[in-house]
Design a binder for these strands. Sequence first.
DNA 1: TAATAGGTATGCATATTCGTATGAATTGGA
DNA 2: TCCAATTCATACGAATATGCATACCTATTA
Lengths: 300, 300
Amino acid sequence: MNWSAVNFDWNHTRTFLVTAEEGTLSAAAKALGLTQPTLSRQVSALEADLGITLFERVGQRLVLTDSGMELLEHARVMGDAAMQFSLAATGQSQQLEGSVIISAGELDATVRLPKIIAKLRREEPGIDIEVIVTNAASDLKRREADIAIRSFRPTQNDLIAKKLGEEVIWLYGTKDYLEQLPPFKDFSELTDIQIIAFDRSNMVSDRLNQQGWQLSKHNFQLITSFQLLQLELCKEGMGVIFFPEDMGDKETSLVRAFEHMGPVMKLPIWLVCHQELRTSLRVRRVFDFIADEFSQILNQ
Amino acid sequence: MNWSAVNFDWNHTRTFLVTAEEGTLSAAAKALGLTQPTLSRQVSALEADLGITLFERVGQRLVLTDSGMELLEHARVMGDAAMQFSLAATGQSQQLEGSVIISAGELDATVRLPKIIAKLRREEPGIDIEVIVTNAASDLKRREADIAIRSFRPTQNDLIAKKLGEEVIWLYGTKDYLEQLPPFKDFSELTDIQIIAFDRSNMVSDRLNQQGWQLSKHNFQLITSFQLLQLELCKEGMGVIFFPEDMGDKETSLVRAFEHMGPVMKLPIWLVCHQELRTSLRVRRVFDFIADEFSQILNQ
DNA sequence: TAATAGGTATGCATATTCGTATGAATTGGA
DNA sequence: TCCAATTCATACGAATATGCATACCTATTA
């Protein structure tokens, strides 16, 4: 086998990739845990190696040349392969020590996870836990997280998912707010109710309208995807929120709205992890632990 | 974007790949132009990084562990991407200086190429030429060569090929050898002729038998894929050889056999190069140059 | 216009990595 | 059984890459 084609500094390609994606050397340096001068020199070295100008130094910014654009495509492929390699390596690791990254939404992160993590840390002090709190689904393939807690079943088939149970969702509001609503026999009469919602998509209103509501934009005048703010706004009597049963019932200032009509919806809770990581002792330990604890909470 | 997954030493992965493929650290070191102790340390560092034992040190040999096997698959993907990157980089290079690797068979390398290369070197002293002499078709995709001279049209569609012309092939032998053959009216009577052939495949005999010959194993008692040896054996009167017209006619000790029957076959000559390299000034220069000179030789 | 913020390139001391030399262990063959 | 040839691991001086401090440039803002 002739290896001359791979006999160049792969780290320089890595630097090129991250620099091109991040846009600046400084940002890339931060991402890679190196310094800007180092990356500056590495990019220069790569350019000298290849005999190609990758970046045009225009003003304060580096702009990819056409050649750079072309090569970036290949560097991306290499980067993806590197991620796969890293992922597989983590999966192959049979060491219980090390870190596990968990992705969760705000509510899970602030309410349900703390006790679980505390208990896990007591049982497995060798496992470091990093929690990424985000509404967006972290990319498990890029190992932004090792384990994710999600309310939908992932579609990618290289992910393994376990359904932990179902969250019962009610509408919650302050007693005062709910009492000042006009009496009604049917949801369709609640034309003035304020629902503090996640975003401007019609998903929520469509769903409720199917159940007999008649909601329009006027019912969604407070929007935030930050659920803890939703909660506080609700406590201030600004409207009702969707909230899981187990958490909402603990909020003494809130009560279930329209309890006699039953819960407004149920959301599944999935624990997801990359298939490659199934073989990792450490990730598996955390995965199983969270699954157990979560199930206990949901089915108590 | 989270780059933590790519933030490891890619060169160590490269070392792992080459070491695993080559089998030993020493061989890998030679292939990479590094030393064995360096690779030894890099592999150890990678193992420490990943927390995985990649190789089992059994005796003097490194044997891949199961985890290593698993990871090797991913490393290969990364290596392939690296080759593509390197290939594209060479193609993007707009420098005329640098090296070009030409793959050719022995005959072309010893007879036709020297003058072409000499002329090219005079015109383009900045271009270094490396010639790989081999019967096997070099893998252009792995950049074992940039340009190859072949007698068949390549099938891969990411290669570009130019037909330079056709080689007229005659059987040649010494006058003495040919005269001692029994007189014949038809090729089928030449049951005792010795043909010095390339290999034990039936390709040649099948082809000639289609033309009326009746050849069997007895007619191929001297086998060598080294054509210059074929030539020398032929000069010694050991049999006849297939030889291109332009070269054979210059051999004063040889004559065309059965000239009245016409040439025994015609072989196309293709000049091949990877598509990515089409954009390289340097490779293109050499490609066009060889194409011109070769055509002149063949069509003179 | 001047000040600030954010970016890249360069000089220098330092840390890391590499190559040479060497040793230990194993294999293969005389 | 012994010797030669490989192969991997380790010690130490040398080469290389890195980080810090800094200079310099550009765009934005007061």
